[in-house]
Each structure stands twice: as C-alpha cells, then as structure tokens.
Design a binder for these strands. Structure first.
Length: 461
RNA sequence: UCCCCAGUAGCUCAGUCGGCAGAGCAGAUGGCUGUUAACCAUCGGGUCCGCGGUUCAAGUCCGUGCUGGGGAGCCA
C-alpha cells in the first residue's frame, strides 16, 4: 500500500502518479448519474484535491452518502484533470470512510460569519479562511526565529511565572496554590509567606526585564512567548493571553531600536507574502481588498519617524475634529494615532521621544529632562504594533525614576544590579504577534488570529 | 468599566403601518453523462434570546436581564 501523501505535495507534482494515498476531510460532494466528485482537504494547503469516484467502485452506494465533514482515505491515480478548475485530480481506485460526520456538522459549504465560527472555535480551523490564518501563524513564528537567527540574536526563554508586578505593564493574573475558600490571612491580607513561592506571584505581562539581563551578557537577544494581561479590555485589538516578540540589544540606542523594528516588520511581511502566497491571496480577495497595496507599501517604503512634539504639532494644525483635543504632554489617543498613520502619512509611523510622565520608569531620560527615549510603531487600522525604548542605563537616574513613580527599590535589586556592573546603553521593544498577523491578513478582530482566544468572560475552549 | 448596535429555522438573512412565521443554503428522498459553494424536483425543520408590561392582537412598541459585536480607556 502506498504511503500517505499530503495534498499540497500532490498538487505540486510535476507528473502523473500511478498509485497514491490521500487522507483528509470532505468539503463537498457532487454527484452525477454514474460517478461523484469529492473535494478533499487535509489542511496541508488551501486547495482541495478533486477526487473522481466512479460508479464501478464496490462501495459506490456508500460513497454517495459521504457527507461534508467526513474523514476519508482514498487510494488512486493522480492524473491531469479533464475539468477546468484544477490541474490534477485523483481517480479513486478505493474510497474508505474513516469516519462519517452526521448531518448536524455545523460547517457548511458556504461562508459563515466570524461570530458564528468563534462560537465553534474547535472546528473553525477546518474552514478555508481559518486554515489559512493558522498556516500563516505557523509560518510567521518560524520567520521570526529565522529573522533573528540571521542576525545572530539568541533566543531566551523568559519565565512565565513572575514575582509581583515588577514589569509594570498592566494587571496581573494571580498564580497561587493557596486555598481561595480558606485564604490564610495576616493583618487582613493574604499571607503570601504561606504560598508556594513564599511571595505574591503572577503570570508574566512582559519578558523585558528578564531579557535585558541576557542582552547585558549575550549581546543581542529576544524572547517570544505567551504574555498575560488581566485588563478588562473589550476591543478588537486586545486579548488576555497573547504572544509577544521582545528583542533586546546591548550597545544600541533608540535609533538602532527603530531600525530593527522597521526592518523586522518589513522583512516579515516580505517573507510571508512570498511563503504564503496562496493563503494571503484569499485574504486579499475576501477579507481586505486593499491588503496587497498595504503590504507592498510597508515593504517598499520607509516608515515615517516623528518626534512626539512634531506629532502634536501636526495634530494641532490638522483640520480634523477630534473628540479629545490634543495637548502637549498628553498621551496620543487612538483617534490621533489613526489620523497620523491612516490619513496624514498613509503608512507606518514611528513616534518617539515621549513626555516622561506618560511612560514607564525604565525608559532612558533624554537630555532635556522632559522626554524619554521611547518609541511606538503605529500602523494603519491596528494602531500600536510595537512599543519600545532605549533603557535607562545610569544607575542614579534609574533610582531617581523609581523613586518618582513610588515603586519599591527593593523589588528591583537585581534589575538595578545590572546598572552597577558594566552597565551599557541598550534598547528593545515588544511586538504584538497577533497584531502583526492582523496586519498581514487584514483580519480586523484579534480573536480571529489566535486559536482559542481568551477575553473577559470568555474561555469556553 | 463607559457609550452605541444587534439577537427570527442547523447557517445567512427578509419580515412593510402592530394583524396567519418567510426565502436561500444545509439535511432527507428522487432525478441528472465531467462537476467546481454543481444543477432540478419534493419533503421535514421555529422557545422569533429570557422575563415583565402596553394592546382585542407583539417577531414588531416599552422596561429589564443575558449574550454577542463596534467604539473608548488600558496596551502588544
């Protein structure tokens, strides 16, 4: 018996093959009087293979009953198709039903709403669109590692469980082994001395502080893994569990940081456009008609780099009416970011040198004493896709900033240590993996680019 | 958490001024000589999101709850 061959291999075959074995799921069946066409998909590519099942097959009566969603194993000949829609087709010599899907199989051979598919997230990767999304997601993960490998970056596995909110980026999911229905208390508060780690702990909100320690030893490094934010965010751009790519570079200033962010987005867009051509075309046709133009624009022209103060100036002098009037010193609102990247420049924009009061303590204070060496990369439709900075490498300035923000110096003793021993300028950023996927596919809801999305009040799967 | 919108057959949706609950797809059955989300015919299929109210009469109007979505804030 022939070994199973995947459909993408067959469809790319340079010549007919006498005996092949295909296994997959039936997308649709079309009957004629004396034979049937069966469209089979095995997830290896977007396209199905067309199987011709002739009436002379011993079990043809059963073949005619095969439903959409059923699993089949088919042996046959790969031959040039007589029909117009495909180069190759499979003339079946044997059709075996592995498992019959009953009539209540929810996926039909037509388009479903994303809303409905979200309610059957366990089955949605069997559709064309979601199959494509998750093939691209896989390819993008690989491309990220490849990008860094080419540039001699080391991959660091930063911890998932962390002690306290020392990363300073949003609400923490608690990690504890203490019985919640009988919490050991001390002075009315949970007694974490009795907890597993003897300390208050949570899931990571960023690997940055940890990965900085490795930049200051291995040079250029990155971490790429799951990140958790217990924010009660209900938007199309937020989930409670997402993946983040965080490079960190020693001996690197803000400009080098911006260079890497820009180069990375351009490189990854180019790689996916090349390696996932067929899947991307599906999105360009059915999801976002302007996708190709957007992606080509990103790849072929450099990003705008704009100091925060100039951004404020542009917004002030625009004729656009904003809900929130722009003022120097305030953080840019969504509508401001969207105006800059979607209307004014119509391309990705990097805004840098933000007022220190609206940014984190670890960002390097500029010489003006007012701004910090922070940068955000904004892209059309999504907004912020990268947030990063040059880090404060001067111990005294860092201690001062920690004091100003009412954080505890003791918690950060090890972080501060890195500034005591061979401290050097260094920079890094966080890139939202799912947001990059949204940019690449034109998918407008982040819940649709992650296998099983976690959002407030929603964790069915 | 706040503002706005939606919820009708398994799915996508229509339902006019408050007056008998509809179509396409899917399913079942039959037909059709190569189809391309095949096509043609017939049949089965409803807690109109829940609760309360107005009315002779509510899918439709009002109140409320739930669920989902869009926007805001937070950010990746």
């Amino acid at each position: 018996m022939a070994k199973r061959t995947k459909i993408n291999t067959l469809l790319n075959s340079p010549e007919p093959i006498d005996d092949v074995l295909v296994k997959g799921w039936v997308r649709t069946r079309r009957d004629s009087k004396t034979f049937s066409f069966i469209e089979v998909n095995d997830g290896s590519c977007l396209k199905n293979i067309q199987v011709v099942a002739d009436g002379s097959l011993g079990n043809y009566e059963d073949v005619k009953k095969i439903t959409t969603g059923s699993a089949v194993s088919i042996q046959g000949k790969l031959v040039a198709s007589q029909g117009k829609g495909q180069h190759w087709e499979l003339i079946a010599t044997q059709v075996n039903l592995i498992h019959m899907a009953p009539e209540d199989f929810p996926l039909q051979k037509k388009r479903h709403s994303d809303k409905f598919l979200r309610s059957i997230a366990h089955l949605r990767p069997r559709t064309n669109k979601y199959g494509a999304i998750f093939r691209i997601r896989s390819e993008l993960s690989y491309a990220i590692h490849h990008f860094f490998k080419q540039r001699d970056f080391r991959y660091i596995h930063t911890p998932i469980i962390t002690s306290s909110d020392c990363e300073g980026a949003g609400e923490l999911f608690r990690v504890t082994t203490m019985p919640l229905d009988n919490l050991p208390l001390k002075d009315g508060k949970p007694d974490y001395l009795n907890d597993f780690f003897g300390k208050e702990t949570g899931l990571t909100v960023s690997g940055q502080l940890a990965v900085e320690m490795f930049a200051l030893s291995l040079g250029d490094v990155y971490t790429f893994g799951p990140t958790f934010r217990a924010e009660n965010s209900n938007t199309s751009r937020h989930v409670a569990e997402f993946w983040m790519v965080e490079p960190e570079m020693a001996f690197c200033d803000l400009e080098g940081n911006m260079d890497l962010g820009e180069e990375m987005i351009q490189d990854l867009c180019g790689t996916i456009l090349q390696n996932c051509k067929e899947d991307i075309e599906l999105f360009a046709r059915f999801v976002d008609k302007s996708l190709m133009k957007t992606l080509e624009g990103i790849i072929n022209s450099s990003f705008v780099r704009l100091p925060y103060l100039e951004a404020v100036d542009i917004l002030k002098h625009s004729n656009k009416k904003f809900e929130f009037k722009i003022k120097k010193g305030m953080d840019l609102q969504s509508e401001h970011e969207r105006y800059l990247t979607e209307e004014h420049f119509k391309k990705p924009v990097i805004i840098y040198d933000y007022p220190k009061d609206i940014k984190a303590f670890y960002m390097r204070l500029n010489d003006d004493g007012e701004t910090v060496a922070a940068m955000d990369v904004l892209v059309p439709k999504i907004g912020e896709i990268i947030g990063g900075s040059q880090r404060e490498e001067r111990l005294s300035v860092l201690e001062q900033r920690i004091a100003e923000t009412a954080l505890s110096k003791d918690t950060y003793w090890w972080y501060l240590d890195s500034r005591r021993f061979g401290s050097v300028p260094h920079s890094g950023f966080g890139l939202g993996f799912e947001r990059l996927l949204m940019l690449l596919t034109g998918v407008s809801n982040i819940r649709d680019v992650i296998p099983f999305p976690r959002t407030p009040n929603s964790i069915e799967f």
